[in-house]
Design a protein around this nucleic acid. Structure first.
Length: 309
DNA sequence: AATCAGGACAACCGCCACCTT
DNA sequence: TAAGGTGGCGGTTGTCCTGAT
């Protein structure tokens, strides 16, 4: 395949760099994209002086260098959205990523493989099985909702909550999830240019640029009426091994859903944290809501969210 | 302090759909 | 209409980091 005295093209191929990108390469790519825009990646690779393939340049830009890439751990809201959308669409990572501004398909894919599939392995369940989906829906998602309404936010005075939140547009696509069909606005619309998806313009969004409109979320699938009771004696702790999840930048700073929820939802006394604000390891079914409670909570949650829309 | 194992995530690969000629 | 090029997507691998021993 690689003989001596190959053509110039072969020589160029031989010189292609692989592996981690250097600072110089990043700078070069960023500068080139800033001057010429995205797209035509093969041409970019040839003209920029980067000894990389067009694909490699595209991936580096989209997954790492693009200015609106969001860093840090996924917030509970984002995790909830991923779980929900994955149950609907499966491994359609790019499609799921369209609903998480600033998150890449690669990041979501990695999250699924390292966190979610790990749980499935520990439970000895196929991650694509109906049982695991039910486990997620009945146990994991309520926990994420619980974390969304963090104890810090619960201290917010109820009388001031709605007004305070109403001053800020809702920033999280979770709102759409909780109210199917609801439109969502973003604080920095220019960052969220979406393409290749079904767009759905809001019926009443005065002054809202078209780029702020997210693709229509699917209808919420029905909750399973039968939680997987077989799992009752298995430890199920999605947050184990990810202690920093409580303090990610996005969850604590960019989203104030919890304060809204706090005014509408009452929490079981058993939903407790330890001294480090870490959720304690629980047996499945322990300290969790029943399905009826979960329905009530979600309903209240949606009503609370609706207050400022 | 050194080593090892596991986790997290960046990067690559192959396939496929779409576009252009 | 066919062929080649390009970009997007999902799966997989490689590398670095961190915590445990």
């Amino acid at each position: 395949m690689s003989g001596k005295g190959g053509s110039s093209n072969q020589d160029e191929d031989m010189e292609l760099r692989r592996g981690p990108w250097t600072l110089q390469e990043d700078t070069l790519l960023t500068h080139y994209v800033a001057c010429h825009g995205e797209g035509r990646w093969n041409l970019l690779a040839r003209c920029s002086g980067l000894r990389r393939t067009g694909k490699s340049c595209r991936l580096r830009w989209l997954n790492y260098l693009k200015p609106d890439i969001k860093r840090g751990n996924l917030s509970p809201e984002e995790q909830l959205l991923i779980l929900e959308l994955h149950s609907k669409w499966g491994n359609r990572w790019s499609r799921i990523a369209q609903f998480l501004p600033g998150r890449t398909d690669n990041e979501i894919k990695n999250y699924w493989r390292t966190r979610v599939q790990k749980q499935a392995r520990q439970l000895k369940i196929d991650a694509n099985s109906a049982m695991f989906r039910d486990a997620i829906r009945c146990y994991w998602m309520p926990r994420l909702l619980e974390k969304t309404a963090s104890p810090r936010s619960l201290q917010t005075p109820h009388h001031g909550t709605a007004t305070a939140v109403a001053d800020q547009p809702p920033q999280d696509p979770l709102l759409q999830l909780l109210r199917p069909g609801m439109q969502c606005q973003f604080e920095n619309p220019s960052s969220y240019e979406l393409s290749g998806a079904e767009f759905c313009r809001p019926s009443n969004s005065p002054g809202l640029p078209s780029s702020t409109v997210l693709p229509q979320l699917p209808d919420l699938p029905e909750f399973s009426p039968n939680p997987p009771n077989q799992l009752n004696d298995i430890e199920f702790n999605p947050f184990h091994g990810n202690s920093s999840i409580e303090f990610n930048a996005y969850g604590s700073e960019a989203c104030d859903l919890a304060s809204v929820t706090a005014s509408a939802v009452s929490y079981p006394a058993s939903s407790s944290c330890d001294a480090n604000n870490e959720y304690c390891m629980n047996k499945i079914g322990d300290s969790l809501w029943s399905m009826d409670e979960l329905y009530v909570m979600l309903k209240s949650y949606m009503e609370g969210v609706a207050c400022f829309l």
